[in-house]
Amino acid sequence: MRVKPWVAFTTALPDDQVEDGHNNIVLFGGRNVAVAIGEIFTQLGCEVAEPEHAAENGWEFSLRYEARHRFWCQVNSTSHPVFRLLFENMSFRPGAAPDAAAYAELALKLAAALKNDPQFKEVTWWSIKEGPPEEDEFGSAEAKKQAREDPSSPISAAGKEGGRPPWGCLALALFVTLSGVASLSLFFAGISRDRPGEIIFSGTCCVVVGLLGFLRAWYERVET
């Protein structure tokens, strides 16, 4: 069971995009939508931060649920009144049972709140693989056909919450790290004593880059 992070909907809220009169966008639209969704989260017991402008990516805000579960939302649009919301779990261990349960619980509550809120209509939920429909596909029968599961539900029965780590990237990062360690070990074992600066530099670089890559790959999940 996993939460589908993409939410597509239409809104009755007005278009708040700010333009300068010369076909230049000063502020992308969607702030009012972000605020409205933030208010819903607040009603659900969350502590919600102010939305931030993210240029062509729309508006972003973070929130806390039950004080310890952190989530992140991005609201953007290609054309008013069609919007999409990316609702992500910011836990360090997205697959861990308490975080996954809180994520699913909050998603279900949000789905129910959006369904009952007259400002939002045609709410559908999509996985990362499926992605949200584009504006001209929105609400079409074709888009619903492409959905692997019922798009009205935020929960997918298939797959595991948090996905899986990208094992290939993890293996590569681990190899780089171990190569750095081996390189330094070979130096201290006396294999390349004639150029200590080079070996220490390259070994240290490999260890640092490998560890950073490992951490990045660990937190980058592949949807299952």
Partner: peptide
């Protein structure tokens, strides 16, 4: 995770970059 992008309202009949 990137999709389409918003365009100025009067440039493309309200449609975005798809």
């Amino acid at each position: 995770k990137a999709g389409g992008f918003r365009l100025p309202a009067h440039l493309n009949g309200g449609k975005g970059w798809r």
